[in-house]
Design a protein around this nucleic acid. Structure first.
Lengths: 124, 124
DNA sequence: CAAGTGTATTAACTCTCTTAATACACTTAC
DNA sequence: GTAAGTGTATTAAGAGAGTTAATACACTTG
């Protein structure tokens, strides 16, 4: 299902999380379909099942998966993570923006940047 | 000149940096006045001079101090760090804003938050 | 040249994080 | 009900990055 990059210095569980996030966000995994068991994927990647569990736990916290003990982990519907992601992102954005204000950046400066960042996309 | 908090779990050099930043930003240290030598402050805080040097180096990178080898470290004028701080902050803000856009937050949403954050200050 | 200053290099230490080993608990199929 | 599958919890080992200290070097000034 996924492939590890051994040149990548990040921890294994983090790579697993990232790759599965992308698969789920890209719609490659059907909602409510069962994920490989922690043991199966552990075997597949030659890694301890706990490492996979850690990845699954994080994905569950972020709303990408849901788990039923004894049965398995399943792909959550998009509604579960889309909003959570926005909310988390907005909170972070607010903190940085407050710090930007404290550093002396004006509302006009930031508003200008904001327009610029969103216009770049429309052009592309 | 400063006092360490042993309950603070952060590294010593980071505490020193933070406290000196506040002193300089608050105008408590006169521009171009000499800072205590790394040895003197090391003695004062019962810490290795290298630890103080590390703090001074970071403060120098941020523009709060300037150093003359063999003579000492001195308080930099406000013009040295004020702009650098803004520039750094703006770069960080742009990154977070781009990620916010990717997460699905609209320009209108962020613009609204922006106004809110800046209005809170005017009221106070 | 002596006593002060910052600087560079190296090593020890600590501490957090990651991963694995292992045992436990639940669900399902037969 | 038992076996084979599933996730879960606990503990420990291992690795690695980061912090601090020891020490020697280089520059400035009187």
């Amino acid at each position: 299902m996924i492939l590890l990059d051994y040149r990548d210095k990040r921890p294994i569980y983090e790579q697993v999380v990232e790759k599965l996030e992308k698969l789920i966000m890209g719609g490659a995994l059907e909602t409510d379909s069962r994920m490989p068991s922690v043991r199966a994927m552990g075997m597949d990647l030659a890694v301890n099942p706990n490492t996979i569990q850690r990845a699954y736990n994080q994905l569950e916290q972020e709303g990408y998966l849901y788990t039923v003990s004894g049965r398995g982990s399943f792909v959550a519907p998009e509604s579960e993570w889309r909003e959570g992601k926005k909310k988390k992102m907005l909170a972070e954005w607010r903190l940085v923006t407050e710090r930007a204000r404290e550093a002396g950046l004006t509302r006009e400066q930031l508003a200008g940047q904001l327009n610029q960042i969103y216009e770049e996309v429309q052009q592309a």
